[in-house]
């Protein structure tokens, strides 16, 4: 399951990230923020228009906004 289809509020763990499918700087930024294999995350908020983009993730004590296009490159499993 990729992150974009994960239900809001459900805790999950990142199992794989398709780094090649992301722009280089965006991959770097995600990694620096801790969005990487093994991280435990949950989707906490979603936008309203156009496929409920962007998404807000909860990661530890941080809230991070990303777009669906990034979420689609992130493979997760229920934690």
């Amino acid at each position: 399951m990729t992150l974009d289809v994960l239900d809001s509020g459900k805790p999950a763990r990142i199992v794989a990230v398709d780094w090649a499918g992301l722009a280089e700087d965006e991959g770097k930024r995600l990694k620096a923020l801790g969005v990487d294999e093994g991280a435990e995350i949950a989707v906490v908020h979603r936008g309203v228009f156009g496929g409920r983009d962007p998404l807000a993730l909860r990661l530890g004590n941080m809230t991070i906004a990303i777009r669906r296009i990034h979420a689609r490159a992130i493979e997760v499993e229920a934690a």
């Binding site: 930024r29 995600l30 941080m62 809230t63 991070i64 906004a65 990303i66 777009r67 990034h70």
Partner: peptide, 12 residues
Amino acid sequence: GAASGFIMELPR
């Protein structure tokens, strides 16, 4: 060009 992305920390 390619559509841009949006990655941002939402501070407390």
